[in-house]
């Protein structure tokens, strides 16, 4: 084993592959972080829509969730890559395509987590809030969501970790993330063992910090 191959290519692996600074469009963080943030925001709206009383809001949200949960992520990425530009008659940039595909796809899963989290809050909480004269929106914002979000942390973080690792699928449209960067280096150096072991450690460190932070957050948000 000779890890000098990693040392020699560390700039490319970390700066280009992990962070996205370099000659290629890429970066695991550059895709994963905005995808998590935007996917979660969209997921909150979808989760709320799933619980709406009005069928016009509830049913489209349900169809959205069922559709995107039923198809493979790779297919969604291909779709945005080949079909949308065809329909719109404009080429779309890799980054935009990858980010949109992830946000749209993940929001379906995150929406279900949000819905379940909201439903996990006892009904008496909303009754108490409304009986003091809070509007339904204030009840949701100040009473239900804060408790729901705390209950959701474990499921959310699991999903964020899945999303983080799934960003490697963006390489199929030429996006240079950490996995793709290792592949590029390996094609030149032929040291698969060292390179793939190295990126495994990097992935693991990132996801492990995410789950540690989640546990800390969960503890901190437990009242009393």
């Amino acid at each position: 084993m000779d890890f000098t191959v990693v040392a020699k290519n560390i700039d490319f692996l970390i700066l280009q592959g992990l962070l996205g600074f370099g000659n290629f469009v890429g970066g695991t963080f550059r895709l994963a972080i905005p995808a998590i943030v935007l996917g979660f925001i969209l997921g909150i709206f979808i989760g709320l829509a799933r619980l709406a009383r009005t069928p016009w809001i509830r049913i489209p949200a349900m169809v959205y969730v069922e559709f995107f949960r039923g198809v493979p992520l790779v297919m969604v990425i291909f779709w945005f890559w080949f079909i949308i530009p065809l329909l719109l008659r404009v080429p779309l940039p890799e980054y935009g395509v990858a980010l949109t595909a992830f946000v749209v796809f993940e929001a379906a899963y995150l929406g279900e987590i949000v819905r379940a989290g909201i439903q996990s809050v006892a009904r008496g909480q909303a009754e108490a809030a409304m009986s003091t004269g809070l509007t339904p929106a204030q009840t949701m914002g100040y009473v239900i969501l804060p408790q729901a979000l705390r209950n959701m942390i474990p499921a959310l973080v699991t999903q964020f970790i899945v999303l983080f690792k799934d960003t490697s699928l963006a390489s199929i449209i030429g996006y240079v993330d950490l996995t793709k960067a290792a592949e590029i280096v390996n094609n030149r150096e032929i040291r698969p063992f060292e390179l793939y072991l190295f990126i495994a450690v990097v992935y693991w460190l990132c996801t492990y910090s995410m789950s540690r932070y989640a546990r800390y957050l969960e503890r901190r948000l437990t009242p009393g």
Partner: peptide
Amino acid sequence: IGFVFQQFNLYPHLSAMENIVLAPMKA
């Protein structure tokens, strides 16, 4: 109309003070 429940239904994520001031401040 004030309502008092059998199970109290206080907001568990807020202190007693915050439980009380929420509605006066927001509503």
